[in-house]
């Protein structure tokens, strides 16, 4: 299970950030061809991103490209330029219609075929930035097998709801809950939107704790300094780690003895709980060997 606590946006026409972004060790990077790139520069940015992808130095990051919206004539050129050169997935803005995702799925399959890449390997991350998108979140999430995550928008979504962003964030609570529900019902990730007040570290921490509690697995990031804060929020407490260690150890022991049931402290532990415990340890950066000593 891949960690998706942070995804760092890298402006697609900025060599400095494209080349260095991964050094800050976010779980993923988003090479941005949409809002970060002026219309007149989309062509140069595509070529630059292509070269950077060919070089392929992103550490352990999940590499995605935010393509232009499917309401433009740019998205086809975007995916043709980047998919053959090694991306884990593409992030699509303003998704509203499951049929758009099916169209994207076909276009991606064609490109994967031509490029000799395994069909279906390019994942899709959907940004739901309108009321309609949020409303259809579940249908979008199950529209194709490629959907890896759905994400609520921030500014755009607020505007579409005919309200404004407040300190309390109450306007986005509802949409966030709907995205979390839809994501988990569909079996995909729920990833939250960016926190734009870069200097407000306390505010970032509070919002991250809130969305984690709602059920999100991570947030998008617009500045490297935000990464350590978000990671620490998603890092399990010593108590959680301890419990997880004991569950994973018990499961390994049961498997060794050929026993079907796993017991911890005299209580039965279900398989999803074991899986969850393994994920907790992964988030804490603890390997299996360390657990078993």
């Amino acid at each position: 299970m891949r960690l998706r606590r942070t995804k760092l946006y890298l402006p697609g026409n900025n060599p400095n950030m494209l080349l260095r972004g991964h050094l800050f060790e976010p779980d993923g990077v988003i090479l941005d061809l949409e809002d970060a790139v002026a219309l007149s520069e989309k062509d140069t940015a595509r070529i630059l991103i292509q070269q950077v992808l060919k070089r392929g130095e992103f550490g352990n990051c999940e590499v995605t490209v935010r393509i232009n919206g499917m309401d433009t004539d740019l998205w086809r050129k975007d995916i043709e330029a980047v998919v053959p050169f090694g991306v884990h997935g593409v992030r699509v803005p303003k998704v509203e219609d499951p049929r758009e995702m099916q169209l994207l799925d076909e276009a991606l399959s064609e490109i994967e075929d031509k490029a000799g890449i395994a069909q279906g390997s390019t994942l899709v991350f959907c940004l739901l930035e309108t009321a309609l998108g949020i409303h259809r979140a579940y249908d979008i999430a199950i529209s194709t097998k490629r959907i890896a995550a759905i994400c609520p928008g921030g500014e755009d979504l607020t505007a579409d709801l005919h309200t404004s962003r407040s300190d309390s964030g109450v306007e986005l609570v509802g949409p966030r809950r709907m995205v979390v529900l839809a994501a988990h019902a569909a079996g995909v990730c729920a990833l939250d939107t960016v926190f734009s007040r870069i200097a407000d570290e306390e505010g970032l921490r509070k919002e991250t704790e809130f969305v984690k509690q709602l059920g999100f697995e991570g947030k998008s990031v617009i500045h490297p300094n935000q990464i350590p804060i978000i990671h620490s929020v998603f890092t399990p407490t010593p108590k959680e780690i301890d419990t997880a260690k004991r569950i994973v150890a018990a499961a390994a022991e049961a498997a060794r003895r050929g026993l079907g049931a796993v017991q911890v402290d005299g209580k039965m532990v279900d398989r999803p709980v074991v899986k969850r415990a393994a994920f907790t340890l992964q988030r804490a950066g603890i390997t299996e060997e360390e657990v078993q000593g």
Binding site: R20, L23, F24, H223, P224, N225
Partner: peptide, 8 residues
Amino acid sequence: TRDPLRLL
């Protein structure tokens, strides 16, 4: 400094 690379 607040430059992320230098802080890293």
